[in-house]
Write a protein that binds this DNA or RNA. Structure first.
Lengths: 155, 155
DNA sequence: CGCTGATAGATTGCGCACAATATAATTGTT
DNA sequence: AACAATTATATTGTGCGCAATCTATCAGCG
């Protein structure tokens, strides 16, 4: 492969990622609109629902690590969910630096309405589930590679 | 598959896409920082550089179509590039609704500095070019499927 | 010509993303 | 105990990304 090809490939794959990501979240938008949620808010709730079922306490930093977001994104997002009484933000007694996020009953109840969301997405798109799963695994692998590289370069 | 699996964060392609996209653009950021560009600004310039070489006029709507962005994103972005004298925004004489975007000499010159950007990205990450190319093709195919579905649903 | 509908772009407003910085609490060290 | 370093979250500011709305222009048609 020539240098030119490598340069072009970089641009192509990054743009493909950029465009595909927006196309997919655009596909989510009308579905989540019925729950009055944005896509990042939905992701936060996915983590909270999962932890709630397992009886695990979720701190802001847990959400940050799981979703690869920082507090500049999460704090205002969580405040908006709090205003809507979907979550509570409670400062920990043991360590007063920590804020624990818990679901309210409304937040817990929203899970039932959200159950139908994933199915309506790819199900209604005529996309091959096996190919989609393979793509997901490639993306996870790519993410892992990038994060591993960051780790080692920092040390 | 149980309901729990469907809502599990790790099982979602969309999250993999979302996280991988941000990881890749984060990888671009320090490189583009040396040119004082953001990733969307860089994408706009890629289109302009390409059209400039081919002697093609680029309208705002051309950028919107190519990059899948709307004017609410593009207009302020282009104004910022204009303030920095990288592009000109000229309203067409033939059709006064149209705004044509042209490169200034500085904007054209920036292309040389940008040449080294892509190679440093995935090339320096020890990722297999063939796998990256396959990923690009899958993403393009996904994007195409989603856009085709939108087309038909509109009619 | 005057009207209607379509088209191109701009504007406003909201919600992310993220860098940079700040604040407060905790831990480690001496 | 005093203090430096670390950790957890919050705040501020900038730039997307997109929905909704607006203005101006153009094209078609009686």
């Amino acid at each position: 492969m020539t240098d030119v090809d490598v340069l072009a490939l970089d641009n192509q794959v990054c743009f493909a990622l950029y465009a595909a990501n927006r196309a997919v979240t655009a596909r989510y938008r009308p579905l989540l609109k019925t729950l009055n949620l944005t896509y990042p808010q939905y992701l936060v709730l996915l983590v909270l629902w999962e932890a709630d079922g397992a009886g695990v306490r979720v701190r802001v930093s847990d959400l940050a690590r799981r979703l690869r977001l920082d507090t500049g994104t999460l704090t205002p997002l969580l405040k908006r969910l709090q205003v809507r009484h979907l979550v509570r933000r409670i400062r920990s007694d043991q360590d007063e630096r920590v804020v624990v996020i818990t679901l309210t009953d409304s937040g817990r109840a929203l899970r039932e309405q959200a159950r139908t969301v994933p199915g309506q997405l790819l199900g209604g798109s005529g996309l091959d589930p096996a190919r989609v799963a393979a793509l997901r695994d490639e993306l996870k692998s790519l993410l892992q590679s990038l994060e591993d590289a960051d780790e080692t370069s920092v040390r």
